Simulated assay, not measured.
Amino acid sequence: MQKRFPFLSLSAYGSGWSANRRIAIVITAVAVLLAIAAIVAVLTGGKNSQQAPDAAASALPTGSPSFSDAAPSPSSGAGSVPAPPQVAEPVAYAKAAAQMLWSYDTRTTTRDQQLAGMRAWMTTKTKYTDWASVSGQVPDPVLWSRMTDQDQYATAAVSEGHYPSAFKEALADDPSAITEAYVFIVTVNGKQTLSWQKGGGGGAEERAVTLAVQCRPNHDCTLSAIAPNVTQ
């Protein structure tokens, strides 16, 4: 029977966390610019359940290596990971970041290169960054090696991006709050297509992710964090 291997999946990050912990991370990231009550109301409005595991990931045996937030090697380069665009508009940057997060190529890129390339998209303002939420999308070294053995790669297409209603409502309640950190919350939708050359396997899946993006005046945007799904 043909083996299938896991890929960078936004639905996998934080799957073992409690709802309260995931909500707390997002609140911490955006507390300086959002009304706390508005964010808590939306993020606790649903069941905060994760999507079902990807079909490729579910084929792994129990006890498969978990995802890792290891720091990238400074000298590793970025492989096939694209450089962040020089964009000052939050939605445009978030769409580019989502496409980057949903794409990878183990044929040309090592795990360290993948992490280093992703790290380049992050804000350098440590107060507003959650690197673990982003690096957690990358499988651990053993799993990445298995993916490499199968020449696994993924491409992505973004269909749209928008500000969630909670963010828009919070800004309407306090327009000046954004000027403290200039962190914008953007939900992006699209599709990820997975392929592996050995065995000719592949598949596609719809994707949705909510990103925290910092866009300060007279600066290009940067990525702050991946947040739990808020798709309203």
Rank of each mutant, 00 (worst) to 15 (best):
M1T: 08
K3S: 11
F5H: 12
L8K: 09
L8Q: 14
L8C: 14
A12V: 05
Y13Q: 11
G14L: 04
S15G: 00
S15F: 00
W17Q: 13
A19C: 11
A19G: 04
N20W: 03
R21M: 09
R21K: 12
I23F: 02
I25H: 11
V26E: 11
V26I: 07
I27S: 01
V30T: 15
A31M: 09
V32W: 03
L34F: 09
I36F: 02
I36K: 13
A37Q: 13
A37Y: 07
A38P: 02
A38F: 08
I39L: 14
I39R: 00
I39K: 00
A41V: 06
V42L: 06
V42Y: 13
T44C: 05
T44E: 10
S49R: 12
Q50K: 11
Q50L: 05
Q50M: 07
A52D: 11
D54R: 07
A55Y: 12
A56R: 04
S58N: 10
S58R: 14
L60Q: 15
L60T: 09
L60K: 09
P61Y: 11
A71C: 00
P72R: 03
P74G: 08
P74C: 08
S75I: 10
V81A: 11
A83L: 13
P85I: 03
Q86M: 08
V87P: 00
A88N: 13
V91Y: 04
A92W: 02
A92H: 04
A94L: 01
K95D: 02
A96G: 08
A98M: 12
Q99L: 06
Q99C: 07
Q99R: 15
Q99V: 05
M100I: 01
L101N: 04
W102T: 03
S103K: 04
R107H: 06
R107Q: 13
R107P: 02
T108F: 09
T109V: 05
Q114C: 03
L115I: 08
G117K: 03
M118Q: 12
R119I: 00
A120F: 00
W121S: 02
M122I: 02
T124S: 13
T124V: 06
T126G: 09
T126V: 13
K127D: 15
A132W: 01
V134L: 14
Q137R: 10
Q137T: 13
Q137G: 01
V138H: 06
P139W: 10
P139K: 06
P141W: 03
P141C: 05
V142F: 06
L143K: 06
S145I: 00
R146V: 12
R146N: 12
D149S: 15
T155R: 11
A156I: 07
A157Y: 07
E160I: 01
E160G: 03
G161C: 06
S165A: 13
A166C: 10
F167D: 00
A170N: 09
D173G: 06
D174Q: 11
S176I: 06
T179W: 05
E180F: 10
E180A: 13
A181K: 03
A181D: 14
A181Q: 14
Y182C: 04
Y182W: 15
V183L: 03
V183Q: 05
F184T: 01
F184N: 15
I185K: 00
Q192N: 04
Q197C: 02
K198G: 02
G200C: 06
G202Q: 10
G202W: 10
A204Y: 07
R207E: 12
A208S: 15
A208F: 02
V213P: 01
Q214S: 11
Q214N: 09
C215K: 05
P217N: 09
T222A: 15
L223H: 09
P228Y: 11
T231Y: 09
